[in-house]
């Protein structure tokens, strides 16, 4: 259930590319789109969950995004990667949601409270703790900074890839990241010297930056 959505290694790279699947879908193949969904849903979920910080909202956003991608598949132009295109739709769905209603402040308290009070299970202690604190901290950032940090620092995309997803210049992504990190530093600095931090496994894209 918690297996990380890795980019497939060269050995198991699927024979059919995303772009081919999308074309097949446009041409009426009834199974092509579900294959695309299957390939990318974990990653899309991660982006939405981290950007919105709320599982219900994230589920709605990802669903909206996939349905909308299904509908406007024909408008996809080959110049961007299918993944970039999908990310863009998901991120925009998330940003839309955040704009429509500012995310509930109650959830912050709950998360922080829970993070403080619970001493989680030994096997997932660190993951859960860090995860809760990070979620709570991210929610304090403005939407654009949050989206940039989720893509670049959490998901491990290059600044250039994130810029394509967000459809802004690379410099804008950099400055959003910089400002976001500056705001998070005082909140998260106490996690700094956790020797075991770097052993926490997680699902990341390839770090290219």
């Amino acid at each position: 259930m918690n297996s990380p959505p890795e980019t497939p290694s060269a050995a198991e790279r699927p024979a059919v590319t995303d772009a081919e699947l999308l074309t097949a879908h446009i041409n009426g193949d009834p199974h092509a789109f579900s294959e695309i969904v299957k390939r990318h849903r974990d990653r899309m979920w991660a982006v939405a969950l981290r950007t919105l910080g709320d599982p219900d909202e994230a589920a709605d956003a990802v669903q909206d995004a996939f349905v909308s991608a299904y509908r406007k598949a024909a408008t996809f132009r080959g110049e961007a990667a299918v993944t970039t295109w999908l990310h863009r739709i998901v991120v925009n769905a998330c940003l839309d949601r955040m704009r429509r209603k500012s995310v509930r402040p109650v959830a912050d308290d709950e998360l922080i409270e829970a993070a403080e009070r619970e001493s989680p299970l030994p096997d997932q202690t660190l993951e859960r703790e860090v995860s809760m604190e990070v979620s709570a901290a991210l929610k304090m950032l403005p939407a654009d900074q949050r989206a940039a940090l989720v893509l670049v620092d959490m998901m491990g995309y290059s600044v250039e890839d994130a810029a394509q997803v967000l459809q802004v210049p690379s410099g804008t992504v950099k400055s959003r990241c910089a400002r976001g990190r500056a705001k998070l530093a005082p909140i998260l600095s106490h996690l700094r010297n956790r020797s075991d931090l770097n052993r926490v496994s997680s699902a990341k894209g390839d770090r290219t930056s």
Binding site: N2, A46, R50, A59, V130, D153, M154, A185, L188, R192
Partner: peptide
């Protein structure tokens, strides 16, 4: 160093797989 730690902490935060319920729900919507 605090700033560098932010990147590290964010990178180390696990990203869970999509829960089965959400995946089914999306299949259904599609």
């Amino acid at each position: 160093a605090d700033l560098a730690a932010v990147r590290e902490v964010l990178a180390a935060t696990p990203t869970p797989a999509m829960p089965m319920g959400v995946a089914l729900r999306i299949d259904k919507a599609l």
